[in-house]
């Protein structure tokens, strides 16, 4: 028996919007720790990892570890039928091939049940070791989204270079080039607007903007985004979900020639 009741149903809606363009079908794993997912995009260039910890749910019952295959587009369609302020409950009986999404409005006078078929998905699960990254940048999530969107109108790839002074995003295309530098900030009154750089070694890596733009669909989940980079490793873009966990995207670099 699985029963997960989340007071902020809008959060689950945002989580699905942040994953559905990258991944079609994925297994959600439910354990006493929480509700999680790890999935690669169809071209195996990017990976998304989601954790919603059990403590973040108002009620969390998961009698045994269970893996439920779902089509993320269909799940997003069902969750779009929930109001942003609705309480959302996920329910599944042991051995059932369906999951039920129950939506309750805040005044609790409207209750909706949506039942979705589960799928058998044969997915690979990658072991991602904890790594010390050479450069870590924390910056406003909306600013990062704006940069990725703007640069993708000029070129297909972005060179991200981190130094002690700041982080530079550069691209080039048929019409010309673009460079955006975000200097590290030192304000203390508005930490959500700060650009913070922890750098052991300067790093410069090239990535496909198409994927970065897809990751920025998670922007509504967090005010800040953390970008971790090391030479010869995939970058990690993390949006922390307050009180619940995180959504992390891993993206393999491109080889500059």
């Amino acid at each position: 028996m699985l029963e997960l009741r989340l007071l902020q149903g809008g959060l689950l809606k945002k989580v699905l919007e942040a994953m559905k363009d990258l991944v079609n079908d994925a297994n959600f794993d439910c354990s006493p720790t929480g509700f999680s997912l790890q999935a690669m995009d169809s071209s195996h260039v990017a990976l998304v990892s989601l954790l919603l910890r059990s403590e973040g749910f108002e009620h969390y019952r998961c009698d045994r570890n269970v893996s439920m295959g779902m089509n993320l587009n269909n799940m997003a369609k069902m969750l779009r039928c929930a109001g942003n302020d609705d309480i959302v409950t996920l329910k599944a009986d042991d051995g059932s091939d369906c999951i039920t999404f129950m939506f309750e409005n805040p005044s609790q006078d409207k209750i909706a049940d949506f039942e979705m078929k589960l799928m058998d998905i044969d997915s690979e699960h990658l072991g991602i070791p904890d790594a010390e990254y050479q450069s870590i940048v924390r910056m406003p999530a909306a600013e990062f989204a704006r940069i990725c969107r703007d640069l993708s109108t000029i070129g297909d790839t972005v060179l991200i270079s981190v130094s002690k002074e700041g982080v530079q995003f550069s691209t080039r295309g048929d019409m010309g080039t673009a460079n955006i530098v975000c200097r590290r900030t030192t304000t203390v009154d508005k930490p959500e607007e700060d650009v913070i750089i922890e750098m052991e070694e300067p790093v410069s890596l090239t990535f496909a903007l198409r994927y970065l733009n897809s990751f920025t669909k998670a922007t509504p989940l967090a005010t800040q985004v953390t970008i971790s980079m090391s030479s010869d490793l995939p970058m990690v873009i993390e949006y922390r979900i307050e009180g619940m966990g995180y959504i992390r995207y891993y993206l393999a670099p491109k080889i500059d020639e």
Partner: peptide, 14 residues
């Protein structure tokens, strides 16, 4: 011009 790495090259399959 830029070759794209596959992410499964970096992490072991569990």
């Amino acid at each position: 011009p830029n070759e794209q790495f596959n992410i499964s090259l970096f992490y072991a399959d569990l």
